[in-house]
């Protein structure tokens, strides 16, 4: 993801899904293995990638969380972007 100028919206969302899933999975592992330094480092790396990608997505395509819903001009952006169940239309 480092080389691209302006990532495609679907690709960027896919990247967010991937790094977010890595975080979800690592959180569950860390909850029962809180002393695993390898998992701690893995989590730190992926949570940073996730933060960066969420910010980039908000800047280019609109907010995915309310924390990112402020920086998109004069219009309330939260209601503009599609909802997650609206995919796959012909």
């Amino acid at each position: 993801m480092n080389q691209r100028q302006r990532p495609d919206q679907e690709q960027l969302l896919q990247w967010i899904n991937m790094v977010s899933f890595a975080c979800t999975e690592t959180v569950l592992y860390l909850n029962t293995h809180p002393d695993c330094s390898e998992a701690l480092a893995f989590y730190q790396k992926h949570v940073a990638l996730r933060k960066q990608a969420l910010e980039e997505y908000a800047r280019l395509y609109g907010p995915l969380t309310l924390d990112h819903a402020v920086s998109t001009g004069n219009k309330w952006a939260w209601i503009q972007q599609p909802w997650p169940w609206e995919g796959g239309k012909c």
Binding site: S20, L66, G88
Partner: peptide, 15 residues
């Protein structure tokens, strides 16, 4: 809780 405007795993069903 905080909501994220995406699915945990993407779903695009046309049928």
């Amino acid at each position: 809780w905080n909501y994220e405007k995406r699915l945990e795993y993407p779903i695009h069903i046309k049928e």
